[in-house]
């Protein structure tokens, strides 16, 4: 398992290639990548991501360990960035390896659902008009009930 909370960008191709390299027991690898989305108005200058150093790594590890308990998984990777990002920048990725795709897909969805509302990150959208904290969505909280 690798959990990385980092400011610098990551190379999606290199991370995906390196993930579970040499593991011939698992036939399915799922990767998900989150990208900074511009506002509908096209006005987003910067997305600032704040986090809680100390708690972040621990919370992500706990979420990934829970996924490993629930599904039969090989390796798990979570990368999440913080700091100032621009529209189109990659914010985060998760990758899961499993013998079969169902476990890999479900575990990746689980990781994403929990990471959205249980990992201590907060997003702020900065435009020329000012800055606004992104509000948590009820549907993100509701998504946890299916697990």
């Amino acid at each position: 398992m690798r959990i990385s909370v980092q400011e610098e960008e990551f190379d999606l191709g290199a991370e995906a290639s390196a993930f579970a390299a040499g593991d011939d027991a698992n036939g399915a690898i799922v990767t998900f990548t989150g990208v900074v989305r511009d506002l509908a108005s096209g006005d987003l200058d910067v997305m600032e991501i704040e986090h809680y150093p100390g708690m972040t790594q621990r919370a992500l590890t706990k979420i990934a360990e829970e996924a490993q308990k629930r599904w039969s998984l090989g390796d798990v990777l979570v990368i999440h960035r913080h700091g100032r990002l621009a529209p189109g920048d990659r914010i985060m990725m998760v990758a899961t390896a499993a013998r079969h795709r169902k476990d890999a897909f479900e575990a990746a969805e689980y990781l994403m659902d929990y990471l959205k509302s249980r990992a201590p990150f907060w997003k702020k959208e900065i435009t020329s008009d000012g800055a606004e904290w992104v509000a948590a969505k009820d549907e993100d909280e509701d998504a946890l009930t299916r697990w």
Partner: peptide, 10 residues
């Protein structure tokens, strides 16, 4: 002790 709004990761 830490206080914060609901988290918005991902």
């Amino acid at each position: 002790v830490a206080f914060f709004p609901p988290m918005t990761g991902g």
